[in-house]
Write a protein that binds this DNA or RNA. Structure first.
Lengths: 239, 239
DNA sequence: TATCACACGTGAAAC
DNA sequence: TGTTTCACGTGTGAT
């Protein structure tokens, strides 16, 4: 099909004019230029043309989708006008690498929540006398309503002895750190296996708090519009 | 040209076989399927085919260039396997926006250098009695050798009275802040115009310090390999 | 003039 | 099955 576009072709088709035919040298007969699949010009021709048309339209939509994202990226990248697609993408790669590296440096140096969700639970110290273990759990995620009370409930349900809790925010993201022991009425985690099971259950408990927001979108912090600034006042700090 | 590829076509061409011809219904004669431009099959045919071949090869290289960047982006974006091109780009857009927003929040709250180069010079306060003006200049850029001594020279050459200087680093980036007055031997900037001229000259002076690295690449901090960690010790702090 | 970058329609393959 | 994604070669305008 060597027509400039299918719309044009179909117009002519309606007038009974076939504009482009191909000489197949193997068979020595004329077939439609696109007609490698269908060997004869029959009444299925209309269907073929319709399929071809929808195909090219789908492909056009696909290109539009991709190009829309590319132009969005153009707006995000300074002075990227007059860059061709490859150069633009190269610049985006550079920027993303740079931003990620910076984020790494920031999180290495400061105790603030960043973009990636994170749950970390680890053993900090063990009391040699009574076997009491001190643990540190940190949870970094997007803020949502009831997040803090959910975390508090989680801590309560774990029946641990909360020693200290810290909270820090950046934009709409929040990071909580809890120091706790698993000992309330004597007796630590006797074995290494028992400890690992305990750590896993703590991780699981915090995970389900984070999963809540995806399961129930109404828990999202800002159903209407995402806010930029910190959303806490001291009265919210329940621990 | 409806051959699957040009290599195949050229093989047959060598045997004297022309595989694909098109019936041009306007003229009622056979021309090469691609031959809208050249109307006759002549001895320029070889040149046309060569041009077509180089054209398709160039286009292939262009596609490879773009796809290489896309696959680099795939590696930078977690769990982007099995995403199609459009979805990948959408995810990249999301990430870039997120990272930039986070960077904004960080720089709003902390005094640390971030990714974008920046020179800011502003009037902070004016002494009503003698007209002395206090200025604040901040310079954020990639570290390079001699940056600090260059900045010191700049300050000296401006003949200002340096009140205070601060420096902070993050990774290989550095931010300097200078507080100074333009008064050494009495007399402030009398008029608003004079102040603006002064501010512009200070900005220009710092700008040329930053431009130095692009003009003389040997000033680059890490000619061989970019380092990740802070590169200062206290002995470097000259101010 | 030749080269570059882009959009297009198409064949093939995945699902 | 029909729909979607990708690579391809080509037409075309810009430089």
């Amino acid at each position: 099909m060597n027509c400039r576009n299918l719309g044009e072709f179909c117009e002519n088709e309606a007038k009974g004019v076939v504009q482009s035919l191909v000489l197949d040298s193997e068979k020595g007969e004329l077939v439609k230029a696109s007609g490698r699949v269908e060997k004869r010009i029959g009444k299925s021709e209309g269907k073929t043309i319709a399929a071809l048309k929808s195909h090219s339209e789908a492909e056009r939509r696909r290109r539009q989708r991709i190009n829309a994202h590319l132009s969005t990226l153009r707006n995000l990248v300074p002075s990227s006008d007059k860059m061709d697609k490859a150069a633009l993408l190269a610049e985006v790669v550079r920027q993303v690498k740079q931003l990620k590296e910076t984020a790494t440096h920031v999180s290495e140096r400061f105790f603030i929540p960043l973009d990636s969700d994170e749950i970390k639970v680890e053993l900090i110290a063990e009391n040699a006398i009574d076997g009491t273990c001190l643990y540190r759990a940190s949870v970094c995620c997007e803020y949502r309503t009831h997040l803090l009370s959910d975390l508090k409930q989680t801590i309560n349900s774990l029946h641990v002895n909360l020693v200290k809790s810290e909270i820090s925010t950046l934009g709409s993201r929040v990071k909580n750190v809890f120091l706790f022991t698993n000992l309330i009425h004597g007796g630590g985690c006797a074995t290494i296996q028992a400890r690992e099971i305990f750590l896993a259950s703590v991780r699981q408990a915090f995970s389900s708090v984070l999963d809540k927001v995806s399961a129930f979108p109404e828990y999202s912090a800002y159903p209407n519009k995402r806010q930029r600034v910190s959303c806490f006042d001291s009265s919210t700090l329940l621990f």
